[in-house]
Design a protein around this nucleic acid. Structure first.
Lengths: 307, 307
DNA sequence: TATTTGATATTGATAAAATCAATATAATGA
DNA sequence: TCATTATATTGATTTTATCAATATCAAATA
C-alpha cells in the first residue's frame, strides 16, 4: 500500500472513470488501472465494481476510500505544517548581536520591525561573538548577528554586507592627513587603541596592524568603539573603526583605505536546523535598509577574518 | 513523500540510531540514510541532528515525526478495518437456498450455527436458482446455496460437495431390482415424474433421461422431492432424487448408479464483491458437517449441469 | 598525535516498481 | 452487425529502492 495508490483510489472515486481520474492525476490510464488493481489484490477486497457504468464503489470499498481520504488528509496537514514551519514568523525569537554592530543597526531596525510585525516579538541582546555562537548551539538564541566566516559545521551563515574599516586618529595624526591609506601604512603604528579581549573587532584590528607599538603609559582596553574614539581624541594615537560608526562631524579624524578596502563581513547566523526562512528573510531585508547601499554592492574588498 | 519514508522516519526516531532502525525495518542502513535524507530534502527541513550522538530530533522534526506517526496510525487503522471486514461475522446475513437442498441441510445447519454464533443472524429463505442469482446481484441476498456451475462473471462459487443422483421407482419397477444402474438405462424410461419448471433439479433429470416417455394420464409437476416420491408410490413410474433425500426405509424403492456416478455440484455462491471470508468459511464447514463424508471425497463422478 | 572505534554518508550495481504507448478485450447502443 | 466507449493487458522504458562495500567523520583511546 502506497500513498500514490491511495491518491489514485480517491481520484477514481471522485471521477468514477479511469481516463478522467488518470488525467486529473497527470498519469496514463493504465497506471490507474494497475495501481488500483494492485491495491485491491493486496487487501484482497474489490473496491470498485467495474461492471457498472459509470463504475460504482462496493460497500467495503466505501469504507476503505473513506479511510484513504483521512490518510491523505493527514498527509496534507503534514505538508501544511511544513509550509507553515517555514513561512510562519509568529512567536518570540531571541537575537544576539555583537556590540560593534549593535549601536549602528539595532535602533532603526527594531523600530522598523516592530512597526510591521505585531505578532512577532524580538528579544535582542548584546553579546560577544563566542557567546552568540555558543548560545545558538545550545538553543538559547535563535539568530545571531556578527562577523563571519566562522567555519562552524553547526552554524549556517547568511551574509548581510561588507563593512569597510576606517582609520581614526587624532586630528594631527600623519595618516589622517593622507588622502588614501594603504594596508601597509598600518605596519608600523604607534599608540594604537584597542577594544577589550573578546571583541572580534579587536582581533581584526590586531591582525591588520601586526607590528603596532604601544608607547603610551596608559593601558586601557575599551568596551565600545565610541569610548575608543574619545581616548584617541584625548591621548592622541589612533585606532580602526567600522564605517557605520563614523558620523559626519568626524571627517577631520578619519581616513579611508584605498580599494580594495579591508572589510568585515557581517552576517545573520542561525543553527543549521533553524527553519523559519521567512523570518530570516524579513530580518535580512530590514537590516539592509539601515545599511549604506555600497556595503552590499562593493565587490572589490579584502575580507578580514577574526577567528 | 512515501509511506515507507515515514516508517523509516518513525523507526529512526524510536531507536535514534541508523543501524538499529535499519535492522528493525529489515533493510540496509544505507536505505534508511537515503530515504530519510530524501524526505528531509523534499520538505527542506532537517528532521534529525546527526551531529549529536545518539542523534537528536530538531524542534521542527518533533512536529513532523508526530504527524508521521498519525499518518501511519491512520494506515494501520485502515489495515485493521480491512482485516475486520474479512474476519468479522457480526451482523445479519440473508441466505437463499433451493428447495431440493434445503430440507436436507437447513434444519441441522441452522441449529448448529445458532449455537456457536450468537451475534450473527442468518435469514434463510427458500428460493429457486434463478431468483437466488438475481437477488445476489441486486444485493438482496448475501449468500446462495445451489447447484453449480453457473458461469456467471459476477458470481463467485465456493464448492461444497457432489451429491449423487439416485433412481427412485415403485417397488415393482424393473430398474429398482437392478443392482447397479448405468446412465444408458435412463434412455428409454416410462412414467418419469418431474419437478415443476424452475427447479434446476428438473433440468438435470431431463438431461439425464433424454428420451423419456410419459404414458400416464396424469400430468403433475411437483414442487418437492417428497411429493414426487409419493406420486411414484401411488401411480407407479419413477424419478430421480438427490441422495440426501433418501431415508433408510426407502431401500426397496431406490437403485444406485454405477461409478462414475452422476452428481450435482452443490456450492455456496456470493457476489464477487463479497468480502466476509470468515463467514463463508464457517458456513462451509457447518454444512459439510451435515453431509456424508464421501460427498466431498469422491473424485470419480459425472457432473451434471442444469443451465 | 596517530589509532581505533562507532557512527553516518556515499557509491556503483542490481532488483523492483511505476509508468507509458499501443493495443486488446468487453460492454453498450445505433 | 458495426461503431463507440470503457477498462485491461502487454512489452518497453524509466524511475526508484535497495544492497554490499567502502569512505568519511568525530570522538575516544593509547
Amino acid at each position: 500500500m502506497t500513498l500514490q495508490q491511495l491518491k489514485y483510489l480517491v481520484a477514481l472515486d471522485n471521477y468514477r472513470h479511469f481516463v478522467t481520474a488518470a488525467e486529473k492525476c497527470f498519469v496514463n490510464q493504465s497506471t490507474i488501472t494497475i495501481q488500483v488493481k494492485k491495491l485491491e489484490e493486496e487487501i484482497n477486497i474489490k473496491i470498485f465494481d467495474r461492471s457498472k457504468s459509470p463504475l460504482t464503489v462496493t460497500p467495503a470499498g466505501e469504507r476503505i476510500i473513506e479511510k484513504a481520504r483521512s490518510v491523505l488528509g493527514e498527509v496534507k496537514e503534514m505538508k501544511a505544517m511544513v509550509a507553515d514551519e517555514k513561512e510562519s514568523v509568529k512567536g518570540t525569537f531571541k537575537i544576539g548581536i555583537i556590540p560593534t554592530i549593535s549601536p549602528y543597526i539595532v535602533p532603526s531596525f527594531s523600530l522598523d520591525f516592530e512597526k510591521d510585525h505585531h505578532d512577532t516579538q524580538l528579544i535582542i541582546e548584546e553579546l560577544e561573538s563566542e557567546q552568540i555562537i555558543d548560545s545558538l548551539k545550545k538553543g538559547k538564541l535563535d539568530v545571531g548577528i556578527l562577523v563571519t566566516p566562522l567555519n562552524d559545521r553547526d552554524i549556517r551563515e547568511i551574509q548581510l554586507y561588507n563593512e569597510p574599516f576606517i582609520f581614526y586618529g587624532s586630528k594631527s595624526h600623519s595618516l589622517v592627513k593622507k588622502k588614501e591609506l594603504e594596508l601597509s601604512d598600518l605596519q608600523t603604528i604607534d599608540n594604537l587603541w584597542l577594544l577589550k579581549n573578546g571583541h572580534c573587532f579587536k582581533n581584526q584590528v590586531e591582525s591588520l596592524c601586526k607590528n603596532y607599538n604601544n608607547k603610551s603609559s596608559i593601558q586601557f582596553q575599551s568596551g565600545s568603539i565610541e569610548t575608543l574614539k574619545k581616548m584617541v581624541d584625548k591621548y592622541k594615537g589612533c585606532t580602526l573603526v567600522p564605517e557605520m560608526s563614523v558620523s559626519e562631524n568626524e571627517s577631520e579624524n578619519i581616513s579611508f583605505f584605498k580599494e580594495p578596502k579591508p572589510v568585515r563581513e557581517v552576517s545573520l547566523i542561525v543553527h543549521k536546523n533553524f527553519t523559519k526562512e521567512a523570518l530570516l528573510e524579513i530580518i535580512r531585508k530590514k537590516i539592509l535598509k539601515v545599511v549604506p547601499d555600497q556595503f552590499e554592492k562593493n565587490e572589490r574588498y579584502i575580507r578580514v577574518k577574526w577567528r
